[in-house]
Design a protein around this nucleic acid. Structure first.
Lengths: 138, 138
DNA sequence: GCTTGACTTAGACATTGTCCATTGTAGGAT
DNA sequence: ATCCTACAATGGACAATGTCTAAGTCAAGC
């Protein structure tokens, strides 16, 4: 389970109670949490942890490539622990629920040179929007 | 040029000096402005226009389908006056510049039923990220 | 068990956006 | 042309999210 903590230790990441707690929260349910949700859960395990630390730690985990930032709506960024298998997202327009999806085909090859305007294209992000079964039946 | 204003009037949109100014700003350069940039330009034409009005008006134009909201970075929403031809976006990771692009293929057909999790998928948004020629040479 | 530099903290601050009570006005009715 | 009234605009407070800083704390190596 916690090979996340292993990997981090192996990289010389200084291990503190706070960082461990944040890593554990992300390593739990593979949900897409906002920074404040991560903070709320972290507080459950370590009451004195501060918001700034959670933000800092999340930022570091993103830099290390251990988690991904996802911005599906214009509200809070969400953090996706599933950084090691490329995927895209399917978002419910009503409740904001997110699922990881794996479309076929590669959108990068669908962008002809004539449409690149001299950019060096590095990455592509695909977000499907719709209504989840829960909201549809409500 | 201003068939935007024509269309709005035709829909019974109550025309005020403020709304006209916002529409004119959007109808000008087809750039992707943030709400506050729209406000800044609107103030140039109508100094007493308020921020709230600009936000309200942009929201209404989005509801009417006359402009699109684009969230490419996690900073401010941007507004895209080009709502009538489907397209996607290419964003510079450094300076945030946005270009409209038209990839080949349809990402919607690339999402198999088995990856839809019961969602009614309505829309897909593709964002390419890279470095623009300007930033690359700097 | 020291030392030290990295980590954490609390809270102020910044940015973006929303809400609300009040005031103003577009456009139809007279 | 003037009046009415519903809808729009105002501005300032508030909310949500995120960033920064100065001072205190601690993990890890010696």
């Amino acid at each position: 389970m916690s090979d996340l903590l292993e990997r981090l230790r192996g990289r010389g990441w200084r291990m503190t109670a706070q960082r461990r707690v944040v890593a554990e929260v992300l390593d739990g349910d593979h949900v897409h949490l906002t920074a404040d949700e991560v903070h709320a859960r972290a507080v459950g395990k370590l009451p004195e942890i501060s918001r700034a630390t959670v933000y800092n730690t999340l930022g570091e985990l993103v830099s290390l490539g251990e988690i991904l930032e996802v911005s599906t709506d214009r509200r809070a960024k969400r953090y996706d622990p599933n950084a090691h298998r490329p995927h895209h997202h399917l978002v419910c327009a009503q409740c904001g629920a997110i699922r990881d999806v794996h479309p076929t085909g590669d959108p990068l090859t669908d962008l002809p040179d004539s449409e690149r305007f001299g950019f060096t294209v590095q990455d592509v992000e695909v977000t499907y929007r719709g209504v989840c079964p829960n909201c549809a039946s409500a």
